[in-house]
Every structure is written in C-alpha cells, then in structure tokens.
Computed example of a mutant assay.
Amino acid sequence: MNLENVLPMDIEKRSFEIITEELGELKLDPDKESIIKRCIHTAADFDYARTMRFSDNVVADTLAVMKNGGFTIVTDTKMAQTGINKAALAKLNGNAVCFMSDPDVAARAKEAGSTRAAACMEKAATLQGPVIIAIGNAPTALVRLDELVKEGKIKPVLVIGVPVGFVNVVQSKEIIMASGVPYIVAVGRKGGSNVAAAICNALMYKLTSEQTNRK
C-alpha cells in the first residue's frame, strides 16, 4: 500500500480535496458548502452532505452578527467549548462558554429535577449581547431552549442542533427546526460535540479568512 506524501501543514488542505473529489457530482449550496465540508472532515462521514438543514438566510445573518463582535457561544459540553478555535474567537471579539460545571447550574437542575444541560439554557438566557447556542450532546438542552424561546426569555442569533444519540435526539432537532429560531441542524441521530465546534469554526473561518485576504 502506497502512502501519500503530504507535508504536515498540507494535511487539512489535502483532506478537503479528497472530500471534494468523493462528493463527485453532488452540488452543495456555495453559502453552506464550507460548513458541510467541515462537518464531513471532522467526522469522516459523508452523511452530513445530505442531513444538514439550514433555516433561511441563517449563514449570512449569523456572519453579520459575528462580524460586529461581542457575541457569546454557549456550548453544552466542555469538549465543544475546547474545540472552538480561540484565535478566530479573539479576532472576532467573541467568547465561548460552557456552564455545565457551574455550581449554580447543578443546584438549579437538582431543584427543578432537570438535566444540567437544560439548566444551562436558563443561564444562557441571562447573558447580555448576541448569543449562539451550540448543542452537540444533550437533546434536553434543545427542548428547554424551545420552551425559553416560547416564553420570550431568550432570542438566540443561531441554534446549532447536532446532539448525538438515541433518546429524544431526532425529536429535539425537529422541535428546534419548528421553533422559529435561526438554526443549523443535522437531522437524524448523528452529531456530537466535535461537530458542533466544527460548525462554529466554519462560520468564523468564513470571516477570518476574508479579513486575511483583505490584508
């Protein structure tokens, strides 16, 4: 078996070339292409070319908010928070947080008999400035988020709904797509914290690459 001779700094570039080659004649919306391809790259799973769903104008609208800075990305796992590119966040004057380990969140979840992920959404509703919700693990977070939206307590700029698993995962994604909020969702059971972070990064890279190209 012959190995490809690829320099370390060119591995990602070559990976995306392979993804483009293997997609073949499947045409992706140019506005969404880099996001879908980064999900494929992250999970090595071409199903994302067919399962990603986007609300109307969500990419352009989210980029317009990110461009102005001061936004906060709220994740439901430390893994997703860690996977969000800190250099890109800094360039855009953004922030990424995860409340899962916060004592007040644990106390609120215990009192309400809910999951900590659901309680995290309640804490997210108290944040100032534009909020992006990135869920890669907990469907209960999406269900509670829908309730908070209906109660008028939160109005997220974007909801990334890609929890992975079997219990209420498919249903929670359908709930968010019907909630009226801007969304990027991977329908079905697949997803994960790494995919949630990848979507955040793909959006930010669109802006940071534009900034680099203008210099």
Rank of each mutant, 00 (worst) to 15 (best):
184 I>G: 08
162 V>A: 09
64 A>N: 13
139 P>R: 11
85 N>E: 10
124 A>P: 09
9 M>H: 15
139 P>H: 04
158 L>T: 01
211 Q>V: 01
151 E>K: 13
51 T>N: 10
156 P>M: 02
60 A>R: 15
153 K>V: 03
68 N>M: 04
78 K>R: 10
88 A>N: 14
131 V>Y: 04
65 V>W: 09
80 A>K: 05
35 I>D: 11
44 A>N: 15
194 N>K: 10
89 L>N: 08
138 A>F: 03
127 L>S: 08
79 M>K: 07
100 M>Q: 12
214 R>D: 04
159 V>L: 08
155 K>M: 06
2 N>R: 11
190 K>C: 02
143 V>D: 04
152 G>Q: 02
161 G>T: 00
135 I>R: 02
32 K>H: 15
12 E>T: 14
34 S>M: 15
11 I>H: 01
156 P>C: 02
135 I>W: 03
16 F>Y: 15
198 A>P: 02
166 F>M: 01
84 I>H: 00
141 A>L: 01
201 N>T: 12
80 A>V: 05
119 A>Y: 11
204 M>E: 11
31 D>N: 14
214 R>S: 05
6 V>H: 08
110 K>G: 01
50 R>F: 11
155 K>L: 04
114 S>R: 13
81 Q>D: 07
43 A>R: 14
129 G>K: 07
209 S>G: 00
178 A>K: 15
108 R>T: 03
73 I>F: 15
28 L>G: 12
17 E>H: 12
62 T>A: 02
203 L>M: 10
44 A>W: 15
32 K>Y: 15
148 L>N: 06
124 A>S: 09
27 K>M: 12
212 T>G: 00
86 K>C: 04
98 C>Y: 09
175 I>D: 11
43 A>C: 06
113 G>L: 12
3 L>T: 13
52 M>G: 08
170 V>G: 05
51 T>F: 09
117 A>M: 03
212 T>M: 07
32 K>I: 07
111 E>Q: 14
1 M>N: 12
101 S>A: 13
37 K>N: 12
60 A>C: 04
79 M>F: 10
192 G>Q: 10
71 F>L: 06
191 G>V: 05
3 L>Q: 13
43 A>F: 02
108 R>S: 13
28 L>D: 02
4 E>H: 08
89 L>G: 10
146 D>L: 00
35 I>C: 14
126 T>P: 00
30 P>E: 00
86 K>F: 09
27 K>D: 13
103 P>R: 15
205 Y>P: 03
71 F>A: 06
203 L>E: 04
82 T>E: 06
158 L>V: 03
128 Q>N: 08
196 A>L: 08
19 I>C: 10
209 S>K: 14
3 L>H: 13
24 G>V: 12
207 L>V: 00
45 D>M: 02
23 L>H: 13
196 A>E: 01
